[in-house]
């Protein structure tokens, strides 16, 4: 047992703080974490305070009698700034985005009370990829969470997606000879094609299925219904 904001949380050996909280039905904000895959620890939205230190809950092992603080004013502010950094560093045109309303980045931003970017937009130039017959890649929206990479490697056993580059040039790459998604064996049936928390990996057909007001996060905030995608049926999280 450990304490999360004063609530007792049971855990199994090897659980991270976030895994244990997730199983117990408590929400700690996150973007790069998914219960089905290995933790990444890159988005830092799941930062919590433990023993006077701020750590990512998805990589920090749960320990008995640990006092973990997540819902503090200071951490809420830090998370707000982190998500503002994510918005500022990409090119996020929510008004025209296929996944607006169903997007975890946007939903978490709503939930954290974000109204603006705070930081000047970086307006990066990023390479798009429309080479695949059914999938489109819009790197403008990529948050470098590597969920596609992990899903492709761990579940699809294909290892289609990987992160390349360094620093601000970090980008999604594809394991094919010419570097294009269309030359990989990626398929619409892959888990990786249905894991992106934002609108970076998109089906080419059948977008904008829901009208505004009836989308995943239009009425119910992410802390209530969890991180999931409309095509996952929303069963993976509380």
């Amino acid at each position: 047992m450990f304490q999360l904001d004063g609530n007792p949380i049971a855990f199994s050996k090897g659980d991270s703080i976030l895994q244990a909280a997730h199983k117990a039905g408590y929400y700690i904000p996150h973007l790069c974490f998914h219960p089905d895959f290995k933790a990444h620890g890159s988005c830092r939205l799941c930062v919590v305070d433990v023993k006077g230190k701020t750590v990512s809950a998805c990589t920090q092992p749960a320990e008995d009698k640990l006092e973990v603080y997540s819902d503090t004013a200071e951490l809420r502010q830090s998370r707000l700034r982190l998500i503002q950094l994510l918005f500022a560093e990409g090119n996020h045109y929510c008004p025209s985005c296929e996944v607006s309303g169903n997007c975890q980045l946007q939903a978490l931003a709503y939930d954290l009370g974000m109204t603006h970017y705070h930081y000047d937009p970086f307006s990066p130039l990023r390479q798009q990829d429309g080479s695949h017959s059914q999938l489109f890649i819009d790197q403008d929206r990529c948050i470098q969470c590597d969920l596609c990479g992990r899903a492709s490697q761990e579940q699809d056993l294909k290892s289609v997606y990987l992160l390349a580059g360094r620093g601000q040039d970090t980008h999604l790459a594809f394991r094919s000879h010419n570097g294009q998604l269309g030359s990989t064996n990626a398929s619409m049936d892959d888990r990786a094609a249905h894991i992106c928390p934002v609108g970076c990996i998109l089906p080419k057909a059948g977008n904008y299925p829901d009208i505004a007001g009836e989308r995943l996060y239009d009425k119910i905030p992410i802390h209530t219904q969890g991180n999931h995608r409309r095509d996952e049926g929303g069963q993976d999280e509380p």
Binding site: L82, L85, D120, Q144, G167, Q168
Partner: peptide
């Protein structure tokens, strides 16, 4: 220039 680009606060924070 030297940020590896892995985590949000460093990758984007150093630019900001």
């Amino acid at each position: 220039h030297e940020s590896c680009g892995f985590c949000t606060p460093c990758r984007a924070g150093t630019v900001a």
